[in-house]
Structure formats: C-alpha cells, structure tokens
Design a protein around this nucleic acid. Structure first.
Lengths: 251, 251
DNA sequence: CGCATGTTTGACGATACTCAATGTGTGTGG
DNA sequence: CCACACACATTGAGTATCGTCAAACATGCG
C-alpha cells in the first residue's frame, strides 16, 4: 500500500492518444471530430500503472485535474469526522473522476486505486479552456456530470428504500451492465473491490454482504469464488434487485 | 393538487430580469457582467406563481429546460417500480433543478412545487448556446453541477452511515445554513415540506421523524410548532448531527 | 364547520448490526 | 518451495434500532 509522493501527479509519461484509445466511445471524446480529439490529446497525460492502494487525490486537496480511468478501477470515498470512510463510487475504464471538485476548488472526496490501474490526467483549467472552443466537448462534459448526478440519485434511492438483498442484487446487476458495455462478459467477472468495500458502498455490514453472497449462491443466482462472480440466473437476480426495467441506459 | 396542463410550461409570462433579481449572487448570473446578464435574460421566462402540488416536470418527460427557483420551494423525486417515491432533493430560491436530465434527454426524476412558487424556465438548448459564447456562464453551470454532485454524495453518506437522530439534526443544520445564506434567520424558519417528505428524504419512517422532533424539543434543542421551527441550541444540534466543521460552504 | 389529510404516540417485531470465533486466501521471507 | 502471518471472508448467536401496525389527535382547506 505505498503511495506516490505527489498523489495523482502521475509522473511525466507517455502521451495518451484518445484517437487510438478503445474507450473513446465511452469517455470524453464522444462525438468529437478527429482534429478536436487531437487537441484534447495535447492536454491529457497518461499515468504509468498505479499500484493497488495508490491515491489519485486526497480529500481536501486542491482541485486541479479530473481523471479518466484507462484500465483498472478506482474508488472514491469521503472520510467522516470520526474517521471512517464512505465510498461514493466505483469507477471503470472510460469513466471520469473528480468532477465534484470543480465548484469548491478542492476535492471533497478521495480517490484510490483498487488494483493496478492507469488513468489519464486531465488538467481542468486547460480542459475548461478547450471546452470554450469545442462545443461538443463542452456538451460531453456536461452530459458526464449530468449522468453522475443521476447515478448518485439512484444510489440515494437504493440506500433509502432497498433491503440488503435488493442492494446487493442491484449492485451486481449494475456492474454486469457496465462490464457488458465495455465488451466484457456480463455474467462472469472479477470484483476488484473487497467485501468490506462493497458493504461500505451499499450501506451494509460486511457480514450481511457475506451472508447474502452465500444465500444468492444457494438460491442458484450466482456462483461465487472469492472475487470471481458468475451470474447464473441474471433475470432472477434482476427481479430480486427491484430495479425498473431500464428505460434508457448509456455508459 | 391541480396541475397545469402542460407541466413546466409556465404559461407565457412576464420577462424575468436577472439584473433586478436579488438572487443573482446565488443563481446562474454569478460572476456574469451586466451585458452578459442581459443576454441571459432574453432566454429566461419567469413563471406565474405555481400552486402547491404543481408539477414542474414529470419523470420520463422529455428534457427541455432547467428551472431556477425564484420564490418558494420544490422537491424532486424518483418513483420506484412499485410506485412509491424517493425524494432526491429540496430546492430553494436561487437553486437549479433538472440538471440530471441533460445526459439522457429525459428527466430521470419529477419536480413538484411544495408551496406557492415561482420559477424561471431556462430552455437548455438556448442556455447551451449561450454557454458557448459566455465562458463565465459555462463555468457557472459546471460549478452548479459540481455542487449538486457533491451534495448528493453527502446525502449518500448520511443515508449510509448516520443514525436517525443524526439524520434529522443534519437536515435541520443544512436547512438552517441555506436560509442564512439567503438572508433569512438561521434559527427560525418554516418547513415547507411535510413530515412525510422529510422522512422520505432522510430514509426514515414518518413516525421516527415525528418522535425525533418531540425528543429534540424535550432536549431543548428546538421548538417545534407544526411547520415552524425554532432552533434554540444550534451548537448542540450541530454536535448531534455528526457533521464535520464545514471547511468551505457556498450556496 | 366538517371531512380529509397530516401528525403524534404507543406497542410490537423484523431486519440488519455487533460481537466473536473460525476459516480461507495471499503475500513475504526463510 | 513451504511455512507463517496478516488481512480478508464466512458463519453463528444475540440484540438494538428503526419500521410496521394501529389508534387518537390536530390541522387546515373547502
């Protein structure tokens, strides 16, 4: 669990190239023309692989950049006055981290890497300038922020109304969908976060999560083997989740 | 509980004038120059007073405008598949509603007026155009969205980690702060939402909220008289809330 | 003034948390 | 390569907080 001296500084590295990047349809370049993508490229720097536990930025730190996940996964969390953390999100390739820092000028939460991960560092001041010149970039940033708001509000509903069972089912269903969109199997995947982190995110005790995994397995919904998950009955899991039949779904 | 035929259409009305508006320091015009404010004015239309229970927009409805509260208050909520609602936010003068609809092109939640309320209707397509021309407007929109993300994430923490007591205390403290910023008393105010709505928002049963109000009163923290609240010991209430000593606070 | 809606209060019970112990995996160093 | 240690995960037993059900009470709108 060692951390880079300057968290999030992603030591000077190879240029990222959005136009080569397989994530360009999920990430900021969506609907940008080729020349615009090149301009975006010039302000972005790709980090070297960050080791598990590395800090992208810390809570309270001055806001300077947003980050796009390239490979791996990241959690964001808030630390409460009495020292325990509340995970506010998990982020996968193509997703943007740090948007909550724009307003106050400091990150209201911390971002930590869950496994070996590479990210793109996008200095916000420059991105903002560019957003002034490229209307599609401006729109894409706003769409991304809008989606984050929507997703967070869906989490409010989960935490406020759902049972433990529904929460975990929902969690798995949503992960499944995100993996599917990224071209991975929607039924077999590896959880990069610990049981503890899942529990924390879902507002449950770790023991509850553990018991539910066991129960889901006994019911034939999933096969669990440590962090490996195999969803064996996705439609049943979906029913358990109490989710609406998705009207529209993007990222 | 009657509603306008075309929800949110805010029947053609008087022009709003941001430069006359006392909320301009809280709302979109923040840091706009006078001529820029005039341009913003031209796309905004002020609604006539909407009666309690009126719908600004409904869940699933096509996204077209965002709304700024001028006077009164509004709640936003999501309806779950099994028909009950989850309130995702309360909004007061100067605050913006509907930002979560930008991404998907439809509002993922509904917005309903809690009391007689006037709003400004801001057609998003035109706002977006204007944001392309006015960098400060663009930034202000992004700041507002960023703040919404941050606030929603604070709610995640509340729902996930806090006890019923802490939740209600936090709710009152946050309301207090929002009233203070708007120039009202931070210790005496009127709750425009029902107990039911408070409970729903805080992820509690209405009975729990009711009991807590009683208990807070008996402890000498507040004086309750229906919807009128008088915070008699704000520092003690603050302690009960389990909130961090606010680093920074805007709106 | 009266009905409907909203609020308070009480008794009881369930879901999920806490505490505790055991079991499993992972990484490190001998 | 194995053994140990540490972190993580599972399972069980008991309990607390908060939700549900129910009834009385207040409020306010028409």
């Amino acid at each position: 669990m060692d951390e880079p001296r300057k968290p999030g500084t992603s030591r000077p590295v190879q240029q990222a190239h959005c136009n080569n990047c397989s994530l360009s349809t999920l990430c900021l370049p969506v609907s940008l023309g080729l020349t615009d993508i090149d301009r975006l490229d010039t302000i972005i720097s790709k980090s070297s692989p960050l080791k598990k536990g590395a800090l992208l930025f810390d809570q309270g730190q001055a806001f300077s950049s947003i980050f796009a996940v390239r490979a791996g996964s990241v959690k964001t969390y808030t630390v409460t006055p009495d020292g325990d953390e509340q995970i506010t999100g998990f982020y996968f390739p193509g997703e943007l981290i740090g948007l909550s820092g724009i307003d106050s000028g400091q990150y209201p939460n911390a971002a930590r890497v869950l496994e070996t991960t590479t990210v793109c560092n996008i200095p916000f001041a420059r991105l903002d300038d560019l957003a002034g010149e490229l209307p599609e970039l401006r729109r894409q940033i706003m769409r991304t922020m809008s989606r984050e708001i929507r997703d967070d509000q869906q989490m409010l509903l989960l935490l406020s109304k759902k049972t433990a069972e529904q929460r975990l089912a929902t969690f798995l269903i949503r992960l499944s969908e995100r993996f599917r969109i990224r071209g991975y199997s929607r039924t077999r995947f590896r959880l990069s976060m610990s049981r503890n982190e899942i529990a924390n995110y879902l507002g449950l005790a770790i023991e509850t999560v553990s018991r539910l995994f066991t129960r889901f397995q006994k019911s034939g919904l999933i096969q669990v083997e440590g962090k490996e998950i195999d969803i064996t009955d996705i439609s049943q899991l979906y029913l358990q989740s109490g989710e609406c039949p998705n009207l529209q779904q993007t990222t």
